[in-house]
Design a protein around this nucleic acid. Structure first.
Length: 935
RNA sequence: GCCGGUGUGGCGAAAUGGCAGACGCACAGGACUUAAAAUCCUGGGACCUUAAAAAGUCGUGUCGGUUCGAGUCCGACCACCGGCACCA
């Protein structure tokens, strides 16, 4: 395609300009503002300013990119473009905008490359970051690059380790419902004084107790082990029994691991979803993952034994229908209660269950299996003797690992009971016409009475309440809330991650215990290695560094490292104050950028075209508590990063380090961009679009515009390079609205002989039709309609329709003979967030010819619209008969309803449809339409 | 199975309950050109009728409802996409 305008000269020119001027540097309270900076000039600030003097903040964040070796694909810049447009818009709107970028640079690929080649992962990482930076910069995003950070930077991970220590040194106090320093933990009575035990033993016991309460603790429980990756994985990283990364098989393996007690925050993580502005689907995913369910725990006595089994049920109202009980094969009591006759069968079944991978367990789920233990439990509600089975459809990890089976009203129990011919009885009456067998919804209790209690005739909800109260009163059970959420497995057997600031020691009794490194020893650097593989004995790679591991006093370092999620749990806080050497974030900066802001009021007031510098954004009195004001990224982080980050943030909030309980107030997921064939982009399909190629042919502005023009941000949509040509042509039309055709021809000829881009650009002259004249009424109408639409669409993130509004403006304005400078300036302001390079270039040209009104387009006050200009003299009113369009009539704007009705009835096109009919009703919607209902 | 989202021209899409298809792509015709590209202008849902048009009928996944009026609201269903899935 022929080049529409010299973007290849314009774009680098303005990128360099922005870099030099530091145009997009965001200022913290206490920062020294250079008087020459356009932000200082816009807000008439100078020197050191405090938070009260600064305009309102707006924090716009992109999800943390992992700098992979393959570089950007077209999906990345979709969200980045959206946030950049809004960042630029908010700056023009008068906000102090924080819009940073950085690198989630720990991660597996660099380490795997190191394993293969011996090259230090840092080298690969640095190269990839350089490549990403170059690509991202070429798109003209208005990031404050002075705040760039990388998780692999010791200056950063020092604080990741520091936060870990805060978590390690905290416990969750159920009384205050908060994380608190471990020092506030009270010991139980028997550990209060050293009566009867030596001081050493007391301290050992206290330490054990303390360690069992910490938010970071060591567990020996079975974990997901991935042989191919050579590491353990968190629950969230295992998908369908395979590793999320690479799709390798995983197995359960008991190992000593670090866990973070995220379950303590389950209730808050769930409840606080109601305080943030996220999409329903995303909130729902988190709710499902947290998986709160209300029910009751009930104790069943084992017949002829001292043991009791506790079960969890959400349907205590069906207790009378429990005809058997099932323990998970891993349940503690299985060995205790199994009768000698059943021992072999049970042992065999248990063995088979452990050997099955979880994938097999779920895949074979259709066919229920199980074995009778020979033991019986007593149903506490009616004294019935019910058999106890073990079956792997009961999970050890959920609830108590045991259930009461109510085959009449639970699908799984029903299947199992049918297969093993166990009794099925009805205790819930479904609504008319539904079979009670396997009916699992609410109904009315039946067959549920004993000498002491009857639920018969009660609707499910009431029956639940009644039986729960009765159980509680009898000491047989109580209301219980269960969560699916498990604690977060936080250690990995890798090299390229943050080392734990933890050392292991032995006390005088020979007990191994862990201890935090002092803060003064942070950052704890990883050792240098020549071989990055795990050791032959399966220890993490760090164990190879014998000198690093062994400390002079005989203690040894922890050799696990943190998972990649650690760094991304708090990066948004470090952006606020990334150079701070004494704190992970400064208090004043944190409360300014993360604190409450005035809620936005919309629509913007009608201010005409006059510059509105110094005007603080229109606000209402209500304050919202946002944290990050807008966070944009993909859905793939729904339950990993977004849950983990919320958890860390809540710990930091409880400990008083941050000012909001939630990190991300508004979150928007950009939709997936598919290949031109409508399929997911992938190398193997060969449908991957490389942004570099698009930039080369169409330029960054056209690329940005197309990414937004494709459709609503949140939708999945296919890429179409022809579509880029469409918006590119639009930018060409903008260009031709402003420049003189003849001078452009000269420019093109000169370009064949010269390569001095500044000299070349000087050849281009503004269009002769551009003059400093009063705009006509029509021109003002066109402009203000555009301002209104673009402004409203930006507020609602409807970028695609904002662009079409600007296209309409251009289509219209190209027909003007005289183009008033004031109108063109306002249009460039609207275009600037979308196509900043072209806008800056044309803005500067207007300035140099007509004098400057403002030094910088980026901080020029956003134009308001005057609705007076939008009023039409005559309106086109559609006339319907029985809802069908019959005519469109011209009506003067001040015509009365009666006039309009009369004109509608008088219309020649309408008349035939009224003839011979009775008019039942005439609806006149002012300025909209007339509908005549006839019979 | 459960939860969430989406169904509108050849394609991407737009429409506070009020003229369905704005804006753009692709396409067709015309202007400019020796010619092509680029640019500029015009056209375009389907059907029916017609030499052409006008007029008319139908049309937003399907079926029904509310309403003067439904792409939009309500009910039932179908398809596709995403997530969860033996969670008691």
């Amino acid at each position: 395609m022929r080049r529409q305008y010299p973007f290849h000269l314009i774009e680098p020119k303005w990128q360099t300009f922005w870099d030099k001027q530091q145009t997009f540097r965001a200022f913290n309270p206490g920062d020294e503002l250079p008087a020459t900076h356009p932000f200082a000039q816009r807000h008439q600030l100078n020197g050191k300013v405090d938070a009260a003097q600064l305009p309102q903040k707006f924090y716009i964040l992109d999800m943390f990119p992992y700098p992979s070796g393959t570089g950007l694909h077209v999906g990345h810049p979709e969200g980045y473009t959206a946030t950049d447009i809004l960042a630029r818009y908010r700056r023009a709107d008068g906000f102090n905008v924080l819009h940073p970028i950085g690198w989630d640079s720990f991660g597996l690929p660099a380490e795997q490359y190191a394993v293969r080649t011996g090259q230090h992962p840092r080298k690969t990482t640095d190269e990839n970051i350089a490549n990403f930076t170059k690509q991202i910069k070429s798109l003209g995003f208005s990031y404050d690059w002075s705040r760039e950070l990388a998780t692999t930077d010791p200056g950063y991970f020092k604080w990741t380790q520091w936060i870990f220590l805060k978590i390690y040194n905290s416990w969750f106090n159920p009384k205050t419902n908060k994380a608190e320093p471990i020092e506030t933990l009270e010991y139980p009575a028997q550990l209060q004084s050293a009566s009867g035990v030596s001081p050493e033993d007391l301290e050992t016991q206290r330490r054990t107790y303390r360690d069992s309460k910490r938010l970071a603790y060591v567990s020996e429980a079975p974990v997901w082990w991935c042989e191919q990756l050579g590491t353990v994985l968190a629950n969230e990283e295992v998908v369908d029994g395979k590793s999320e990364v690479g799709g390798f098989p995983v197995t359960r393996k008991p190992m000593r691991q670090w866990m973070l007690r995220i379950t303590a925050f389950a209730e808050k993580l769930l409840a606080d979803l109601n305080t943030i502005d996220w999409s329903d689907s995303l909130k729902e995913m988190q709710r499902n993952w947290i998986g709160r369910s209300e029910g009751a725990s009930v104790e069943f006595q084992i017949q002829g034994s001292k043991f009791k089994v506790e079960v969890f049920t959400t349907r205590p109202d069906t207790l009378f229908g429990a005809t058997y009980m099932v323990l998970s094969p891993e349940h503690k009591l299985v060995n205790e209660i199994t009768t000698p006759e059943q021992k072999d069968a049970v042992e065999q079944y248990k063995q088979a269950a452990t050997n099955k991978s979880d994938l097999e367990r779920t895949e074979l789920a259709k066919d229920k299996t199980g074995v009778f233990t020979g033991a019986y439990a007593i149903n506490p509600v009616n004294g019935e003797k019910i058999p106890i089975w073990i079956a792997d459809y009961v999970l050890a990890s959920y609830g108590t690992g045991a259930i009461m089976a109510v085959p009449g009203h639970d699908t799984r129990d029903f299947e199992f009971a049918q297969k093993f011919s166990l009794p099925i009885i009805q205790v819930v009456q479904p609504p008319e016409g539904k079979d009670w067998q396997g009916y699992t919804d609410d109904g009315v209790s039946v067959n549920s009475a004993s000498a002491e209690i009857s639920l018969n005739g009660l609707p499910t909800a009431e029956a639940k309440n009644k039986i729960s109260a009765w159980l509680e009163q009898k000491g047989l059970g109580k209301k219980t809330i269960n969560f699916k959420l498990r604690d977060w497995l936080f250690s990995r057997q890798r090299y390229w991650g943050e080392p734990f600031p933890i050392i292991w020691k032995r006390d005088s009794n020979g007990h191994l215990y862990h201890e935090a490194l002092p803060e003064s020893e942070l950052p704890l650097m990883p050792p240098s290695l020549t071989d990055y593989k795990p050791t032959a004995s399966g220890e993490p790679p760090l164990a190879r560094a014998k000198e690093w591991v062994a400390l002079p006093d005989g203690s040894v370092r922890e050799t696990n490292t943190m998972p990649q999620w650690a760094g991304s749990c708090w990066y948004y806080l470090r952006y606020i104050d990334n150079k701070n050497e004494t704190a992970f974030v400064g208090k004043e900066a944190e409360s300014y950028w993360m604190g409450a802001r005035e809620s936005l009021k919309f629509p913007v007031s009608s201010l005409g075209l006059e510059p509105t510098s110094n005007l603080k954004p229109q606000t209402s009195n209500s304050k919202v508590h946002p944290g990050v004001d807008l966070y944009v990224g993909g859905t793939e982080h729904a339950v990993l990063h977004l849950l983990y980050a919320r958890f860390w943030h809540k710990v930091l909030f409880d400990l008083g380090y941050v000012s909001t309980p939630e990190p991300f107030f508004k979150l928007v997921n950009q939709g997936l961009i598919l290949g031109e064939d409508g399929q997911k982009m992938s190398k193997s399909r060969g449908n991957v679009v490389n942004p570099d190629d698009i930039l080369k042919e169409f330029g960054a502005d056209a690329f940005r515009l197309y990414e937004m023009f494709m459709g609503p941000l949140e939708m999945t949509k296919p890429w179409n390079t022809n579509g880029v040509a469409g918006v590119y042509k639009f930018l060409g039309r903008v260009w031709r609205l402003f420049v003189d055709e003849k001078s452009e021809t000269e420019f093109e000829q000169a370009e064949t002989t010269s390569s001095d881009s500044n000299e070349l650009l000087k050849l281009i002259q503004l269009h002769a039709g551009i003059r400093e004249v009063e705009p006509t009424k029509e021109q003002l109408k066109t402009l203000h309609a555009c301002i209104k639409k673009v402004t409203e669409d930006l507020e609602a993130m409807r970028f695609n329709t904002a662009i079409s509004a600007m296209m309409m403006f251009i289509n219209e304005s190209l027909t003007w003979e005289t183009k008033p400078v004031s109108v063109l300036r306002a249009f460039l302001q609207l275009l600037a967030p979308f196509a900043p390079h072209l806008s800056e270039e044309l803005w500067a040209r207007l300035d140099s010819q007509f004098g400057t009104g403002s030094s910088s387009l980026s901080y020029a006050a956003w134009p308001g619209y005057n609705s007076d200009y939008l009023i039409e003299d005559t309106l086109e009113i559609p006339v319907q008969v029985n809802g069908k369009l019959r005519d469109v009539i011209q009506v003067s704007a001040d015509a009365s309803q009666a006039d309009i009705e009369a004109m509608a009835k008088a219309s020649e096109k309408v008349k035939p449809f009224l003839e011979g009919k009775t008019i039942k009703k005439v609806i006149v919607v002012p300025k909209k339409l007339v509908n005549i209902a006839v019979a």
